[in-house]
């Protein structure tokens, strides 16, 4: 989640072995998020992390790391900032793409972004998402909101299998992944893993805590 410590935390994540860094732009009513990210968003908003401050944070993070940086947010922020203006300013600040958690593939097709597919998605929607997506597909591993779970969702394997038949796009699996063992199991199936809530929790112990956590995931999936 964007905040004063973000550039340092992003650098630590990259040092630990992260290939891509997702940067949350907080929204007051995040429908896709469980308690960890919701609380982080509440805290970030209380610290004044509005859109302009988040873009500035993105710019400062870009100065510290070379990996792709992907803001993750909600439609309300783009709606009020202006859709094109948001995409343009994010790119200028160093964003590589964008994830909008409550913007299904059929809305705003002109906005280049990483598309999400879920275990409930039809083949037709997966195909559409794969055609529209920007670089890779975000596979939502489970039917639910974000937040650490203790084991791999049984819904991931069939979703990966189904999606592979429909597209050659790289598949990165996220939602729920919390431990090295779980990360390794997910990485057996998908091309990459996305870790949000558990990384936020690790970052509570500062940059070194986050670096250690990411390094443990990296070691588990290599």
């Amino acid at each position: 989640m964007a905040g004063p410590e973000t550039p340092e935390l992003a650098a630590a994540a990259v040092a630990g072995g992260a290939d891509i860094v997702e940067l949350g732009f907080p929204f007051s009513d995040p429908l896709a998020d469980g308690p960890t990210i919701r609380l982080a968003a509440e805290r970030a908003l209380a610290q004044g992390m509005r859109t302009a401050a988040c873009l500035d944070c993105l710019r400062r993070t870009r100065e510290r790391v070379d990996v792709p940086l992907v803001p993750m947010t909600y439609a309300a922020l783009l709606e009020t900032y202006g859709w094109e203006r948001f995409a343009g300013d994010a790119e200028l600040a160093g964003a590589t793409s964008l994830i909008v958690a409550d913007l299904p593939v059929d809305l705003r097709p002109e906005l280049r972004r990483v598309q999400l597919v879920a275990p409930t998605s039809s083949d037709e929607r997966i195909r559409l998402a794969a055609e529209q997506t920007d670089g890779w597909l975000y596979l939502v591993t489970l039917t639910g909101t974000t937040g650490a779970r203790s084991e791999l969702s049984p819904e991931l394997a069939p979703l990966v299998e189904r999606t592979r038949r429909l597209t050659k796009a790289p598949l990165h699996a996220g939602f729920g992944i919390s431990t090295p063992a779980y990360a390794a199991a997910a990485a057996e199936l998908a091309d990459g893993i996305v870790v949000g809530s558990a990384a936020l929790a690790a970052a509570e112990e500062g940059a070194s805590g986050l670096e250690r956590f990411v390094a443990s995931l990296r070691a588990a999936i290599n």
Binding site: D102, L103, L107, L116, V117, T120, S121, V140, T143, G144
Partner: peptide
């Protein structure tokens, strides 16, 4: 419209 996570669309 339908501004919801993909999971709900079906």
């Amino acid at each position: 419209g339908r501004y919801v996570p993909e999971t709900l669309i079906p």
